[in-house]
Design a protein around this nucleic acid. Structure first.
Length: 477
DNA sequence: CAGCAGGGGGCGC
DNA sequence: CGCCCCCTGCTGC
């Protein structure tokens, strides 16, 4: 350390940090991922999930969208809630009878400290750590997570916490002392109880019921890597539903097989260059989609927006959800309008265009911009040659066959206004409109009423004038 | 009155 | 096919 440097230490940093994290989750603030589970929906943070689970981390790595929706199929809500509490607060209370289920769910989701040995903080850089963690997940042959866990259970009843980077005990106590009430279970007695129960259960497991066997099918194929739960990741920008039946790593293969595609991931950008500079305007709308809809009676859970519910209803629901964009070619035609690089750049919101909740849903759920008919399918064969290209805005119901109109229309969503007035700060997205605007400054009124001295800058205004003053329907007559 | 946005024709590559 | 330009209608102030 350089001379004269002081080391400032925030004594309560970890407790405060965890508390704030938990509070943020409670308030659903800054949440950037929705975990759907058995009809309930949890607004959480990628950061926390990926920190606590390489499984989630991998999902997010492969899902470069702003607010994915992860649908857990093999996890129940109470398990998920417990695991979320565990991830956010480092501790959770659980009934003894439910412990096995919870552990199983943790295995499935590879929750560090519960199912997967968590890594002590490394001195290396973060990037290196990511690499390491990735390697760890790729090469799960050693050390065996469960075996490690058993070792932990033999040595420490709090292995789940003691091996994590922050010391665990102050965190737990701090939460208890602050008496948070947002969980239905009583946390005051819970944490130590949970840990004790868990550890004792683990000892039982390690001796009597090897967890691998208890997991059944989940570990049948690879004992060192619990099969992830069936997860559907719904990518906001692209409307793509990804089925993760096997491994996350294989997700893209699954997508290809199912005829789905990542429009935003640029794996197949067939709409080349049509607005490469136009980024996903839905990004800025994303927060709207998941605006906190706090329902105290639901605790942490909340009902998903209707559109999402529809989507979750299955393929038919998805189609209904996509109806605004749905084209005869189906999912294969879905593509990212902005070149599909998956970039998450955020535009300033369109000026003067407040986005309603429902509209925000549409903006998000209907994804980026364009789909076409008459497009080649996955096999490369062209479909519907006779059908003119239909460009449909996925953020509104606008449809056109004119690409220029389509791009121009997209300005509306991006807020792009390339034409600026040299006299004032006015700018617009159509040159014609700028020309009309400039008439304000020049005083030009090219549209004259043939019956009176009235002159107008807009032809439509003259028309209105003609109708109002002269009962003429057409100013040209 | 003025801004906004969609439609369409014409033209060049 | 994409771009330029013009036309047109709607809407808010």
């Amino acid at each position: 350390m350089a001379e004269g440097m002081l080391s400032l230490s925030w004594n309560n940093h970890r407790a405060t940090f965890c508390h704030i994290l938990s509070t943020l989750r409670e308030k659903e603030r800054y949440t950037d991922v929705t975990v759907a589970c058995d009809g309930k929906f949890y607004q959480v943070h990628k950061l926390v999930l990926s920190t606590c689970s390489e499984y989630f981390e991998k999902i997010f790595e492969n899902t470069p969208c702003k607010h994915p929706v992860i649908v857990l199929k093999d996890v129940q809500t109470d398990e998920l809630e417990a695991l979320l509490s565990y991830m956010y607060e480092g501790a959770v209370s659980v009934a003894q009878n439910d412990l096995a289920r919870l552990i199983k769910a943790a295995e499935v989701l590879r929750i560090k400290g519960l199912a997967v040995p968590d890594e002590p903080p490394l001195s290396e850089s973060c990037s290196k750590r990511v690499t390491q963690s990735r390697n760890a997940s790729d090469d799960r042959s050693s050390p065996h997570p469960k075996r490690r866990r058993r070792e932990e259970s033999n040595t420490s009843l709090q292995g789940a916490q003691t091996s994590t980077s922050p010391p665990a005990s102050p965190r737990v106590s701090s939460f208890e002392s602050e008496g948070e009430t947002h969980h239905s279970t009583s946390r005051t007695q819970s944490d130590s109880r949970w840990m004790d129960q868990r550890s004792s259960e683990r000892e039982d497991q390690s001796t009597d019921h090897p967890l691998d066997d208890r997991l059944g099918d989940h570990t049948a194929t690879s004992r060192s890597s619990p099969t992830p739960p069936q997860v559907e990741v719904m990518v906001d920008e692209t409307l793509v539903k990804e089925e993760m039946v096997d491994h996350v790593d294989n997700s893209q293969d699954d997508i290809v097989d199912s005829g789905m595609d990542y429009g935003s991931m640029g794996s197949d950008s067939r709409l080349d260059g049509s607005g490469g500079g136009e980024e996903d305007p839905s990004s800025q709308m994303l927060p709207n989609k998941f605006e906190p809809k706090i329902n105290p009676s639901q605790g942490q859970a909340q009902q998903l927006p209707d559109a999402v519910v529809e989507a979750l209803a299955g393929p038919s629901g998805m189609q209904g959800w996509l109806s605004g964009c749905e084209m005869p070619t189906g999912f294969s035609g879905l593509e990212g309008y902005s070149g599909g690089d998956g970039s998450q750049d955020v535009h300033p919101p369109p000026q003067g265009q407040p986005v309603s909740q429902s509209q925000a849903h549409q903006l998000v759920l209907l994804g980026r911009i364009a789909r076409r008919t008459g497009e080649t399918d996955a096999s490369g064969t062209s479909q519907q040659h006779a059908v003119p290209k239909i460009l449909q805005c996925c953020q509104c119901s606008y449809t056109t066959t004119n690409t220029r109109h389509f791009k121009r229309h997209n300005f509306r969503h991006t807020g792009e206004k390339p034409f600026s007035c040299s006299y004032c700060s006015y700018s617009c997205n159509q040159k014609t409109n700028l020309s009309v605007h400039i008439r304000r400054h020049t005083g030009e009124k090219p549209y004259a009423c043939p019956y009176c001295p009235f002159r107008a800058t807009h032809k439509s205004n003259l028309k209105t004038h003609m109708f109002k003053m002269h009962r003429m329907y057409d100013c040209t007559k």
